[in-house]
Design a protein around this nucleic acid. Structure first.
Lengths: 119, 119
DNA sequence: CACGGATATAGACATCTGTCAATATCGATA
DNA sequence: TATCGATATTGACAGATGTCTATATCCGTG
């Protein structure tokens, strides 16, 4: 951890930047956005995210996700944590089970930033 | 390097996937897309890309890019190479100078994939 | 309250990544 | 062709990352 930036949700972090094609990002803007992309930039996490998104209400139980991969349970837990901490997945515990839900707003804000499409 | 996947441009790699929110990515699809995001997931490369995009014709000379960062010339060269090899920047040499141009199609395809917006 | 199952954390390890200094390459021109 | 300036490559190194095993935590149920 170096100098910390103001705490923003991914949506806020992205929304305050103009689309990539319009105007150079400042150092701070880039520092806000890179971690979001870093969280996405792993094949397992990409599949996790899209798998969660495919469930009803874009919400899935960890118990279902573990079985979909040929990886240990702690590894899946780790990847879910990365996505959660990046603000791309919401977490809610119901009884013994934990559910993760896609932050569609964050994803679409990111998508708009890359694509240059207006939000 | 592990098992190699068929060679696709970023635009092709992304276009053959449905938007993230619609349907889980296959292992191969995720393996195609993750490297694109990995190339983007660095603050310096994000700034480089957006800086190039801000030039006329979305094309910039390396000589201009070097001065915009407090990093060594080889480091900038390295980041440009990463973006180029990911298919996000085109490279062309004119005399002594090298120009990089943004692959807007690749970026907008990626953006559409994340945002779930139809291309 | 003790147990069992669901999930998370800790620690270890190999690999990948970003950076730099040093050096190579390439092309224009004197 | 000798040189110089622009860009790339190489090699080194510290720190980040993905994975595992082992273990901890949390909660419902008997």
């Amino acid at each position: 951890m170096s100098k910390s930036l103001p705490l923003l949700t991914p949506t806020e972090a992205v929304a305050c930047c103009s689309p990539l094609m319009k105007q150079p990002l400042s150092e701070d803007e880039a520092a806000q956005i890179a971690p979001l992309l870093k969280a996405l930039a792993d094949p397992v996490r990409l599949r996790l995210l899209s798998l969660v998104a495919s469930y009803a209400d874009q919400e899935a139980c960890v118990c279902d996700l573990n079985d979909a991969f040929d990886l240990s349970q702690p590894t899946i837990s780790h990847h879910l944590k990365v996505l959660h901490e990046a603000g791309l997945l919401d977490r809610s515990k119901r009884g013994v089970w934990v559910y993760y839900r896609v932050r569609a707003d964050a994803l679409s804000a990111l998508g708009a930033l890359l694509g240059g499409v207006a939000t």
